[in-house]
Design a protein around this nucleic acid. Structure first.
Lengths: 110, 110
DNA sequence: CTTGACGCTACATAATCAGTAGCATATGTC
DNA sequence: GACATATGCTACTGATTATGTAGCGTCAAG
């Protein structure tokens, strides 16, 4: 089911280029959100689920499985959380927050 | 159809927080890829399509519509390309490339 | 032996995506 | 004017994914 790994072919790319694999994975619904929510620390499946607005457990589980296989998230004492690489990625994503605020302003926004 | 704008509610978030809107949009299939492919410059619908591995025109059009409404992409002389904000976003995404290469290495990879 | 939290699965329905065909407009060529 | 070509895009059908709700099996505590 989860057979996305750098080096393998992914939807829309026969190269297996890591960035393509990454985009392919992040381009799945909820993945970005899940990574984002974990920024506040480790949490259980159910905690994570409620942080993600009660996302369906089916999807949450699928995403966590993928993220674990890709070495971005793990599950140990304290619940789900980042691996080292996962933390790096999350840090990068964090930088979008400020940008998004500005972006919102350029769009005539609340 | 495309009613995603910062300040509005999106899937999984009642706050309309810009970062959530962003993640919601980027979490749609092909969106990241489309932004990525435009990095080499403006191109026509059809050119863009072939850069994206012949993505269905239905989807491409939907995504472009959304990206245009969100002020990230526009369509003028020379074809589709970034707006100012779009270029900023793309630049940020570009930084994932190197990270992804390293990430791939940590996963025992080609 | 009941209670509660945990990680997760089953299953049916709804939303989204994909793939192919082809239209309408514009531009250039003869 | 008739014809070819490129462009942006829509229509339509079938396949894939996501959603939502219920609840199971395990474990630790009371």
């Amino acid at each position: 089911m989860t057979d996305k790994k750098p080096g393998m072919q992914v939807r829309g790319s026969t190269t297996g280029r890591p960035i393509m694999v990454l985009f392919d994975v992040l381009g799945q619904r909820w993945t970005l959100r899940i990574i984002w929510e974990l920024r506040t620390g480790r949490m259980t499946f159910r905690e994570l689920r409620s942080h993600c607005d009660e996302i369906s457990p089916t999807i949450l589980n699928q995403r966590l499985k993928t993220l674990r296989e890709l070495g971005l998230v793990n599950h140990e004492e304290g619940g789900y959380g980042y691996t080292e690489m996962g933390a790096e990625l999350a840090k990068k994503l964090g930088r979008f927050d400020k940008w998004a605020e500005n972006w919102a302003k350029t769009l005539d926004m609340p």
